[in-house]
Simulated scan of single mutants.
Amino acid sequence: MISTLTGSAQNIFEASRTGDVETIRNLYNQNKESINAVDSKGFTPLILSAYNNQKEVVSFLLEKGCDVNAKDTSGNTALMGVCFKGNFKIAKMLIDSGAKVNQQNYNDATALIYASTFGHKDIVNYLLKNGADATIKDNRGNTALSHAKMQGNNEIAELLK
C-alpha cells in the first residue's frame, strides 16, 4: 500500500473530493496503485469520494479494484462515512462490492450504528438485509438501536427491534 504520494499524484485526493474522474483515470493509468493511496489522515480516494457523494468516482475506483475496506486513522471506512452522510446509492455500491458491514472503527462503531444515529432508514434496511449485526456495541456499550432511540429515530428503532 502506498503511504503517501508526492507531486502531481497528490491530485488524486482533491480529484476524489471534487468528482474529477478524468484526473483519477489519468493518474490510475500512470500508476495503478494510486487508487489505494493514503493521505496524512489515512483517507483513500474511495473514502474521500464516498464521503463527498462522488458516485462516478466511487464507481470507477471500485471497478478498478481499490480496497473497499481501507480504514482511515480513526478506523473508519468508506461505508461508515456514507452511513454518516446518507447517500444510499453509494452505500449500496460499497456493500455490493464487498464492504464489510460489521467492520468496527477504533470506537467500536459500525456502519449500522452511524446510519441509525443519523436517521438513514434506507441504508439501515440495506445493511440489515446484507448481514449487519444489530447487537454490536460501540465502546460506550450502545447498539444501533440505542443510538436510534437517543436520536428519536423511531422508524429505525422499529426496524432494529
Rank of each mutant, 00 (worst) to 15 (best):
I2W: 01
L5F: 01
L5E: 12
G7N: 15
N11Q: 14
I12H: 02
R17E: 13
T18K: 13
T18G: 01
V21E: 14
T23I: 15
I24R: 09
N29I: 08
Q30S: 15
Q30A: 15
N31S: 15
E33C: 00
S34Y: 04
I35Y: 00
N36V: 06
N36K: 08
D39Y: 04
S40I: 11
F43M: 14
F43E: 13
S49R: 01
S49I: 04
N53M: 05
V57E: 02
E63R: 09
D67Y: 00
A70R: 10
T73E: 13
G75N: 03
N76M: 10
A78K: 08
G81W: 13
C83A: 08
K85Y: 12
G86C: 07
S97V: 06
K100Y: 08
N107V: 09
T110W: 05
I113P: 13
I113T: 13
Y114C: 13
F118Q: 02
G119F: 15
I123F: 15
L127H: 11
L128M: 12
L128Q: 03
N130R: 01
N130W: 04
A132I: 04
K137N: 01
K137L: 03
K137I: 08
N139T: 06
N139Q: 10
T143Y: 02
A144H: 09
S146L: 07
E155Q: 14
E155K: 13
I156S: 07
I156H: 06
L159D: 11
L159N: 08
L160V: 09
K161I: 05
